[in-house]
């Protein structure tokens, strides 16, 4: 199973590139010129979002290294206890929408401490697989077109995250109950 999935995931990207290039070649398009033309746009996009990345990473970095995040986690803890959310997963649930690299670090840490195949470890993996770094995505997408007024996008995206995280926990609980 794992070999097959590895094979499929390794195949996906090369296959897409291959099919597109083959199509261009068969239809006798100037494939390389088109590629260069597009790649130039890529540089523009990265330059547009670079300042945002610096600003965003700085804000998240100081929030984490100053210890403010730990306080926020302690404040939200009672609420999550109320809905019977596993407290081991809390730091992950809070950091997941904010920072990609630190949520990967926390998820890895949880899996190491509780066991990769323990219920908590599996829940952490599912949360990681089912959600995205929301704040980063919103900031990068908006700043790439220099938009500051983002209307209700944060509310909508965070709702999706909360639903995703809660469903992850519920599904894992349900599966482990019905198999044990």
């Amino acid at each position: 199973m794992i070999e097959f999935i590895n094979f499929v995931s390794n195949l996906a990207m090369p296959l897409i590139i291959f099919i597109i290039v083959i199509y261009g070649f068969i239809e006798k398009k100037e494939v390389f010129d088109k590629f260069i033309e597009g790649a130039k746009d890529g540089i523009k996009i990265v330059i547009n979002i670079f300042p945002t990345l610096i600003g965003l990473f700085l804000a998240i970095g100081v929030l984490r290294s100053s210890g403010v995040i730990d306080i926020v986690i302690r404040l939200i803890d009672p609420i999550l206890r109320l809905i019977n959310f596993p407290s081991e997963l809390m730091p992950l649930a809070i950091l997941r929408p904010i920072s990609g690299s630190s949520s990967i670090a926390i998820a890895t840490d949880i899996m190491k401490n509780f066991g990769v195949d323990s219920q908590i470890g599996i829940m952490a993996s599912v949360i990681m697989g089912a959600t995205e770094t929301t704040l980063y995505t919103i900031a990068v997408y908006s700043s790439s077109v220099k938009i500051k007024k983002t209307r209700f996008v944060l509310i909508a995206a965070l709702t999706a995250d909360i639903v995703g995280i809660i469903t992850s926990v519920v599904v894992c609980r349900f599966l482990s109950q019905s198999f044990s």
């Binding site: 494939v31 033309e37 597009g38 790649a39 890529g42 670079f50 990473f57 998240i60 690299s101």
Partner: peptide
């Protein structure tokens, strides 16, 4: 923390520059 975050942002952008140009080029062919 301050310097680490700024470094991380630069590293990410450099990695991104590569994939961004690659995929912008590929989509332009497509």
């Amino acid at each position: 923390g301050i310097f680490e975050s700024v470094d991380n942002a630069v590293n990410l952008s450099i990695t991104m520059l590569g994939t961004m140009c690659l995929w912008s080029g590929i989509i332009n062919i497509a």
